[in-house]
Simulated assay, not measured.
Amino acid sequence: MALLIAESALVKELVSWDELQAVAVGPGSRRVRAVFRQIDSRSQSLLESLSRRIFIEAGLNVTSQASFTGVGYVDLLIEGRLIVELDGAAFHSDRSSYRRDRSRWNNLTIRGYPVLRFTYEDVMYFPGLMLEQVRSVLGTTNRVAT
């Protein structure tokens, strides 16, 4: 939780990197600095930050805000070959955003990048299912034969 708060404050420019570093002194500072090393200033939302942590903790290589020519930035690029887009209501509520997202999705699919889309509810309430779906696309599921 500390990571999400610090990263959000930094990205929203509510605090500077120097101000964050200034609090990392005294007892417990080692843990605080460890949290700060995990901050990714490219993150664009709390949903993105939380999802990134879920995937990293599962041992996956994650790039935030990877750029694709003709598409722009995608929320997360997993293992360099799977795109994860996080659909919070704030940025996906009008017809124009909807059309733009579909165009981007098609462009990436044509280039051979599968795209998985997750909602706030997926990330907050079903992170295990989200991770299972990502691993399934990557072919890295650890399934037990039945």
Rank of each mutant, 00 (worst) to 15 (best):
7 E>T: 00
7 E>L: 03
12 K>T: 01
13 E>V: 04
13 E>W: 10
17 W>N: 05
17 W>I: 08
20 L>I: 05
21 Q>L: 11
21 Q>G: 04
25 V>W: 10
26 G>R: 15
31 R>Y: 03
35 V>H: 00
37 R>I: 04
39 I>T: 04
42 R>S: 10
42 R>P: 09
43 S>H: 00
43 S>A: 14
44 Q>G: 13
45 S>R: 03
46 L>Y: 05
47 L>E: 06
48 E>K: 09
52 R>H: 12
52 R>C: 03
54 I>Y: 15
54 I>L: 13
56 I>M: 12
61 N>C: 10
74 V>R: 10
74 V>F: 12
75 D>L: 09
77 L>A: 10
77 L>N: 02
77 L>Q: 00
78 I>G: 05
80 G>Y: 04
80 G>V: 03
82 L>C: 02
85 E>I: 14
88 G>T: 08
91 F>I: 02
95 R>H: 11
97 S>P: 00
98 Y>S: 01
100 R>N: 09
102 R>K: 13
102 R>Y: 07
104 R>C: 01
106 N>Y: 06
107 N>Q: 12
107 N>C: 06
110 I>N: 02
114 P>T: 12
115 V>S: 04
119 T>Q: 01
119 T>M: 01
121 E>Y: 09
121 E>W: 08
122 D>K: 00
126 F>W: 11
128 G>T: 10
131 L>H: 14
139 G>T: 06
140 T>W: 07
143 R>S: 09
146 T>L: 13
